[in-house]
């Protein structure tokens, strides 16, 4: 293998690994978000079968749409 072919190959490997790392970093969730919700979060909020008012519906929407 020619010397320039080797260099090109090494550069390609390095670039591909960098691209992979960046993509991986973008997909890893991080940090904490503290939310002051405008209602008391009752135990019934945690069961969709019991949702009978607007508060829990808004709460579920927040939890299920990233």
């Amino acid at each position: 293998m020619q010397w320039w072919s080797r260099i090109t190959l090494v550069l390609m490997v390095v670039m591909l690994s960098l691209v992979g790392r960046v993509a991986q970093a973008q997909n890893v969730p991080e940090g904490q978000l503290t939310i002051a919700f405008d209602a008391t979060i009752a135990p019934s909020y945690l069961d969709p079968a019991e949702v009978a008012e607007l508060g829990p519906l808004r709460f579920f929407m927040r939890c299920t749409t990233p």
Partner: peptide, 16 residues
Amino acid sequence: WRKSPSIQRLVFKGVP
């Protein structure tokens, strides 16, 4: 399945 969340931890505090 749809989109990876960007925040690792969510803390909800009930504050009426």
